[in-house]
């Protein structure tokens, strides 16, 4: 059954969505998953990628997850304790933030860049050649827990 990934662009410039979608699709495919964009013909792809205007107010329950493209200002402590869905009320559960611009002064929180209290933060600038860490994370969130260890 197809899983749905919806990208919400909440940056001030609103310019990064296309590049992020392309990088995401490539990385999913590199991991052996079939991917289709909204409107593309595909028989039951593993993952279908949507932008906000394409997805509208649909909701596929637990088969959908949201990613927000945001400016690094969102990493300030004014927001860190809030859930992503309380900051951006959208119909799907937001599971990760992609920060597109250069992150300054985040180290003072003494946490690594990949972590924020309100959800996973992927710093695209630091991983400009690959969305591998983000897709590895998304696979974990879609996959059912394995009781190996």
């Amino acid at each position: 059954m197809t899983r749905h990934l919806v990208l919400y662009d909440r940056t001030s410039q609103r310019k990064g969505a296309a590049a992020a979608m392309k990088a995401l699709a490539e990385e999913w495919r590199r991991n052996g998953y079939t991917v289709a964009r909204y409107g593309e013909e595909a028989a039951q792809p593993d993952v279908r990628l949507w932008e906000e205007h394409e997805y509208g107010s649909s909701c596929h329950g637990r088969r959908s997850l949201g990613i927000v493209l945001a400016d690094s200002t969102i990493l300030s402590d004014r927001h860190s304790y809030r859930s992503a869905n309380s900051l951006w009320p959208v119909p799907v559960k937001i599971t990760a933030l992609v920060i597109d611009d250069r992150i300054v002064n985040f180290g003072h929180r003494f946490v690594s860049l990949q972590f924020s209290p309100f959800c996973y933060v992927f710093a695209a600038e630091r991983h400009s050649s690959s969305y591998a860490p983000l897709v590895a994370y998304l696979i974990n969130k879609f996959a059912t827990e394995e009781e190996a260890l």
Binding site: R3, D46, V47
Partner: peptide, 16 residues
């Protein structure tokens, strides 16, 4: 847990 191998896992509804 660290890894350098991401085996293709079937996608499900994820943990609750």
């Amino acid at each position: 847990l660290f890894t350098d191998v991401l085996p293709r896992r079937p996608l499900g509804k994820g943990s609750r």
